[in-house]
Every structure is written in structure tokens, then in C-alpha cells.
């Protein structure tokens, strides 16, 4: 798994590879550190995420909670079809704002 952060009005955190039991703690740490570093609004670009297990889903939940507790929001962008299926099955569309593209996610912050 690789994580790249692009700074802007709203920071974009691009994740690539697999988010699973072996990598999820690194993702949670990076996201939470970033949120507590004064960036409660984040867009996580899932365009290059290839696989996500239950540990990955729990990582998203943990960071969504952190972002909202810090007064911001965690929004997810451009999940690929396989990942999108898992997000839908796990009910994430009901609790997290998910957008087809990073541009739409950026626009959602106004």
C-alpha cells in the first residue's frame, strides 16, 4: 500500500494497493495524524485501491469518526468497481459521502 498526500484547500490523500489486515494500521495512523494536524477535512482518493478486506473497512470507519470529531469530514472518491461493490455491500454509502471522482468530492466541500 502507498499513501500520497496532495495539499490544497482540502487535502487529497491518494491510496494505492491493498487495504487489509497487514496495511490498515498504517493508513489509520497517517489519516488520523493528518486530521489532528489541523486538516479535519480530507478526501481519500481510492482510484488505485485494488483490494479491501474487513480491516480496510474498519480503518475507514475509524478515520471517518476522527474527522467528524475534529469538526471536519472524510469523503471518499473514485472507488473502482470491485471496491465499490464491497462499500455498497457493507452499507458505507449510508454513512460516508462517496463520489465517483476526486473533482466531485472537492466540489462537495464548496
Amino acid at each position: 500500500m502507498e499513501i500520497n498526500i496532495t495539499k490544497g484547500n482540502v487535502d487529497i490523500i491518494a491510496v494505492s494497493g491493498s487495504i487489509d489486515a497487514l496495511t490498515s494500521s498504517e493508513l489509520v495512523k497517517t489519516l488520523n495524524d493528518h486530521i489532528h494536524d489541523g486538516h479535519p477535512n480530507v478526501i481519500v482518493d481510492f482510484g488505485k485501491v485494488e483490494f479491501m478486506s474487513s480491516a480496510g473497512l474498519r480503518a475507514i470507519l475509524a478515520s471517518v469518526k476522527e474527522a467528524r470529531a475534529a469538526g471536519g469530514d472524510f469523503r471518499l472518491a473514485s472507488p473502482q468497481p470491485g471496491i465499490d461493490k464491497v462499500l455498497k455491500m457493507a452499507g458505507f454509502y449510508n454513512i460516508v459521502k462517496i463520489y465517483p471522482t476526486v473533482e466531485e468530492a472537492l466540489a462537495s466541500f464548496g
Binding site: 487489509d20 489486515a21 478486506s53 474487513s54 480491516a55 474498519r58 470507519l61 455491500m89 458505507f92
Partner: peptide
């Protein structure tokens, strides 16, 4: 959704 969110086991869909 419930079992993915609350359990420690690694669920591979």
C-alpha cells in the same frame, strides 16, 4: 456490514 465493522477477524470478501 455489522460483522465487518465490529469483529476482529479478517473477512476477505
Amino acid at each position: 456490514a455489522f460483522h465487518n465493522a465490529v469483529h476482529h477477524a479478517e473477512i476477505i470478501p
